[in-house]
Design a protein around this nucleic acid. Structure first.
Length: 416
RNA sequence: GUGGCUGUAGCUCAGUAGGUUAGAGCGCCUGGUUGUGGUCCAGGAGGUCGUGGGUUCGAGACCCAUCAGCCACCCCA
């Protein structure tokens, strides 16, 4: 316990049961993504640090203090990815994909953030996400939100979440709004919390979602984004709202929803739950047109979301683990030697077969039982001599003697 | 990064105002059954009490440090 290697802080093993929960979340998401025409991609978990430095914005906490960054033996400055979108944007340019627009991509994998661990917050965690590149406007926003909603529906967690929706306006709208906020809060510096005083310098919009009472008291009279929206921005948002209504997707307009990454503009949304403690966002995203120019120098449009697999996994009722269909219990060295042969033929017939339990027959039966198999095939010198297999139904204890062909047929009908 | 709570067997926890050989339940192993699980009965193994230091005649209990976990802030998936 003292000298042995330990788990690094904030890192978690996924034992079979937890892994299965994760996988079923990914499977459900993937299934819906497929139905919507999104294709799976993977990008490296490591990128040049400057991709994230520039892409996510220096004012974001992620870049400021949460990245796993280091210098390689070759002297490259690299970072473990803290999120997936910047990499997708990079890949867009790396492969000249501007030709093939619009693109619908889905990804899933580990992300890394050097934060203090807490409920629903790990240093290595897993996200899946969807990105729609090269389509823009309210229809693209709607498509992405609808996919997110559909995934939550499939997972059966939709009733535990609320969709929060906001618009941040275009880059120019946002800048004007920002200035107005800066002016307003600067005039009320005395009443601001310590954290918000800091935000005033780094990112005034973040004061909007402050949890501090003293800050919230100021919010009522604070400038609203709606007052700063250009006509086109307003229309885009209105059309999105109309579209959501048409799809029967409920939402709440959250004027204080601000996302932490600098690249967002126009539509921003989060599906939030109150069942997970303080880390309530389960799936969130928005429009990130600006990211492309920052990353690749050329304009493109994008909207997408990312979802926390651990958080979703904690919300769903864990599906049952898949079990093997039957276990082999050979008795005696002759039978022992034949177990692999029988296992091979059963497996080739599509029957999931386990063997190799240790100890006496009693102990093996117990292990087989605990592995959850529905049937045991018990055979020793007697059975081998008569060329039969004794099959035991673990549910009711019934035993049947069967020939090899009959065994496969028997198991196949019982299992399906 | 800041604050609060916690750290005793594989798991969940108990451990009186500091006092000899640290307990329970579950799990595990063995036996009751020569080739048979899930119930029952009997027995058994397993702990440097997170780690390091200190106080004391004596520390699992008290103090300090450190590490880890949890919860909240911060931030976000």
């Amino acid at each position: 316990m003292k000298e042995n290697p330990r788990l690094i802080r904030g890192m978690h093993d996924l034992l079979p049961e937890a892994y299965h929960g994760h996988q079923s979340v990914i499977d459900a998401a993937l299934q819906q993504a497929h139905l919507a025409g999104f294709q799976r991609i993977d990008t490296p978990i490591m990128e040049e640090s400057r991709l994230f430095d520039r892409g996510l914005g220096a004012s974001s906490d992620i870049v400021g203090k949460e990245m796993y960054s280091f210098t390689t033996r070759g002297g490259e400055e690299v970072s473990l990815r803290p999120e997936g979108t910047a990499s997708v944007a990079r890949a867009f340019f790396s492969h000249g994909l501007a030709q093939s627009v619009p693109l619908r991509y889905f990804y899933a994998g580990p992300m890394f953030r050097y934060e203090r661990p807490q409920k629903g917050r790990l240093r290595q965690f897993h996200q899946f996400g969807a990105e729609l590149i090269g389509a823009s406007g309210s229809l693209a926003d709607l498509e992405i939100i609808a996919l997110g909603q559909e995934i939550l529906n499939t997972l059966g967690v939709a009733d535990k979440t609320v969709l929060h929706l906001n618009t941040l306006g275009s880059t120019t709208d946002r800048a004007a709004f920002r200035d107005a906020l800066l002016a307003y809060f600067s005039a009320h510096k005395a009443s601001l919390s310590e954290d918000s005083l800091r935000r005033l310098d780094t990112n005034p919009m973040r004061i909007l979602d402050s949890k501090a009472e003293q800050d919230r008291a100021l919010l009522a009279d604070a400038p609203m984004i709606d007052e700063y929206l250009a006509e086109a921005s307003r229309r885009r948002f209105d059309q999105l709202c109309t579209g959501l209504q048409a799809l029967g997707i409920a939402y709440v307009r959250d004027h204080h929803l601000v996302r932490g990454l600098d690249y967002y503009e126009h539509t921003a949304f989060e599906f939030i739950t109150d069942a997970l403690g303080a880390q309530g966002t389960v799936l969130g995203g928005g429009c990130y047109d600006r990211l492309f120019e920052i990353v690749g120098g050329k304009p493109a449009t994008g909207v997408g979301f990312a979802a926390g697999i651990e958080r979703l996994s904690a919300l769903i009722t864990a599906p049952e683990m898949p079990k093997a269909d039957c276990a082999l219990i050979p008795i005696g060295s002759e039978a022992e030697a034949f177990a692999p042969v029988l296992a091979q033929s059963l497996r080739r017939a599509g029957i999931a077969t386990v063997y190799g339990f240790s100890g006496k027959v009693k102990a093996r039966m117990k292990q087989a039982d605990q592995s959850g198999v529905a049937f045991c095939v018990i055979f020793g010198t007697e059975e081998l001599a008569q060329d039969v297999w004794k099959v035991k139904d673990m549910a009711n204890g019934e035993e049947t003697l069967l020939s090899t062909e009959a065994l496969q047929a028997f198991l196949n009908t019982k299992i399906r």
